[in-house]
Design a protein around this nucleic acid. Structure first.
Lengths: 209, 209
DNA sequence: TAGATTGTTAATCGATTAACAATC
DNA sequence: TAGATTGTTAATCGATTAACAATC
């Protein structure tokens, strides 16, 4: 159960295992072998066994893995067995889409507040989430426990807000701004650089022709 | 200039180089060495030189790299020197955010049409893009050249639409649905699995405590 | 020319796959 | 018990880093 030196590659794959297990569960499948899962997911059986074993012996020789149990355990590893409280910075179209999306789709995550500078939006509710003045960020954070801050504003402001967030003790940032955020060591940033993703696709398309 | 066997890892990094070079250009910096760029980007100078050399000798010994030239060349490699025509499937909040975002931010990409099944939205314009009935997808594709299709609809429908897209000759799909799309070999898929990204962050937060 | 910095090869490191003994 | 399949070690593969000769 030593979770200390798990490679980034494995962490990236965990949510994908989780997704496939959820699917299997909803299909009523109770047990699955690494070989069968391998065929579904298009990864090697060896990698599946190797990956899962970093976290403990979830399987049983001669039998395979119990789907429900494995699903639950990976959920725990990912920290989905408790509620992650989120706040969202930016109530533009992207921020609003994230608010909509994250609340619906992901149990384990709950968006508790939105922050904006546009006076038109402050005081309203978007997808049933209260919109606060961005100036009140520090005050809000001093009163409410928050696990993850989501940044969905342009890059110049994003860098400043990231500083304010880390100064207020935020430990995790989900960043949608087109920039790398300079944050202290104790803050974890997960970037979603959409334009970089699109450029990669453009490259792959071009080079496949 | 052999672009045939470029690793995925390098392709992922190219857009990031592109972003930093754009920044340098806008700061008026004309030349940069791999060492200086290394410090900015927090990668090794060796990796920068190694990466760039896969595509040709862009630098000059004793001098470094000319920012403008390198920026332009990486743009070409990524296929940003021509217009990529996009269509977007799904005019929900995510689709609408992507429409907004991609049109503004990324020169080289142009969203030409939106497809929806909601009768309320069909016939309207969203961020100045015409919304078509999803039933007209094949007809539209037979008349208009399209480079990339963006999928921003729930997973069940996404799989079906992906099939229709590949049957109509689409070669590249930017997929925002929570599923892996089964497509023929000649179709390239770039996934943006937001919930998986958020789960990774949850893991990293949990394990850093 | 001397100094700087690339291009490129060689060494290291890490991640993936193969193999098989352990065991249910 | 025999068959199946995991857990785990060893082998391979690929990616990153270090080193340095080439050269501007």
């Amino acid at each position: 159960m030593n979770e200390l030196n798990i490679s980034k590659a494995i962490i990236r794959r965990l949510p994908r295992y989780y997704r496939y297990l959820e699917e299997l569960k909803s299909e009523g499948v109770e047990r699955i072998s690494s070989g069968e899962l391998s065929e579904r997911m298009h990864v090697t059986a060896s990698q599946i066994r190797q990956d899962l074993n970093h976290f403990g012996g979830f399987g049983q020789q001669g039998y395979g893995y119990r789907v429900g149990y494995l699903y639950q355990e990976i959920g725990k590893i990912l920290g989905l067995d408790r509620v992650n409280r989120l706040i969202l910075i930016g109530a533009g179209s992207l921020g609003s889409a994230i608010a909509n999306y994250t609340n619906y789709r992901n149990r384990g995550f709950c968006i508790e507040a939105l922050f904006e500078k546009d006076p038109e939006k402050i005081g309203t509710r978007i997808h049933d989430i209260q919109v606060y003045n961005i100036d009140e960020l520090e005050e809000y954070l001093s009163k409410h426990p928050v696990d993850i801050a989501v940044i969905a504003i342009p890059k110049q402001e994003a860098v400043k807000v990231a500083k304010r967030l880390s100064d207020s003790g935020i430990r995790a940032i989900w960043n949608f701004a087109h920039t790398d955020l300079p944050v202290p060591d104790y803050v974890t940033v997960e970037n979603v650089h959409l334009s970089e993703s699109l450029m990669s696709l453009s490259y792959k398309l071009k080079s496949s022709k």
